[in-house]
Design a protein around this nucleic acid. Sequence first.
DNA 1: GTCTATATTCCGATAGAC
DNA 2: GTCTATCGGAATATAGAC
Lengths: 184, 184
Amino acid sequence: MSSTKDQIIVLADELMRSKGYNAFSYSDISKPMGIKNAAVHYHFPTKPDLALAIVKYHSDSFDRFTERVAEKEALSKIKFFLNFYTSIQLTGRICVIGAFATDWNAMNEEIQEAMSAFTDNVIKWLTTTLNEGNSSGTIHLSDSAESEALSILTNIFAATQLSRITGSDHFAAIKQNILTRITH
Amino acid sequence: MSSTKDQIIVLADELMRSKGYNAFSYSDISKPMGIKNAAVHYHFPTKPDLALAIVKYHSDSFDRFTERVAEKEALSKIKFFLNFYTSIQLTGRICVIGAFATDWNAMNEEIQEAMSAFTDNVIKWLTTTLNEGNSSGTIHLSDSAESEALSILTNIFAATQLSRITGSDHFAAIKQNILTRITH
DNA sequence: GTCTATATTCCGATAGAC
DNA sequence: GTCTATCGGAATATAGAC
């Protein structure tokens, strides 16, 4: 049981990450939900309001993710992170970071700031986790932890994009390459 | 001196890679060029025609690039390739691969096939070049050449996206990380 | 909180003159 | 090859009843 408002966010997020922000409309949300355009506008008066809600949705989801894996070993945390992207790829979507980056100049400042804060959070978590694993010996770093974090993040989120164009085999190869790199 | 048609393609490409395909309109092209909507439609009857022209434009540009560097040493080729992305980043745009990937499900089959062929070409060139450098000893590979090619490509094209959100320092770090990886 | 109805604007696209 | 003029449609958004 989730509220109409929550259902709208989930659906809008799916649309955003499959067709792009400017390719979906309020009726793409209202029709499959069996409600009217005006009902969506009641919950989210403007489309930027909807975009902002999508950012917050991902920000909250990521916070829950980090809490869920907090007690696990570092390399295991990274694997859970990468497996999350596998589920994105399997459903034909792309990572929210790339989706917003592409439409960046069509977004207002409030949305941009929320996305920046969220993305910085992801990078910080990756950096900290890589350092953890490096200290305990399960992860091997050949550059600074932050540089490796940026490398891994761009690898995996771009892999969801690239595999749309060239096929899912490339996603698997990129994911494996990351694991090979940090464990050798 | 370039034709109106060529100027339209260049401008449409800039718009596509700064605002996204569905965020720019025919008047975004005609107004700055000082012509009318109908003139753009004369050269490109439909918007998908314009998108297809953008793909061909990049495909031709890439072919000219590979010819230009053909006689250079492998590591030097890779550096030219990465420097090309630096110029993309400096102008605030993103790589065309990511731009089309995000709007993938809003594109017709003809465009998708052209983009797939172009992207495969880029991957093949990277793979061949990495093998070249590995044989001559200037490039170090710790995985298959194709996996490393995919890793480098996703790193650098996603870096143009990520740096929009978190700043240009991250682009520099990712680029440096690639070079460190293949030379150590 | 959802509805009907509608306002407004913009977009992609076309016809026909020059 | 570019223009004026315009069409049809879709999109965001709002007013007011229920």
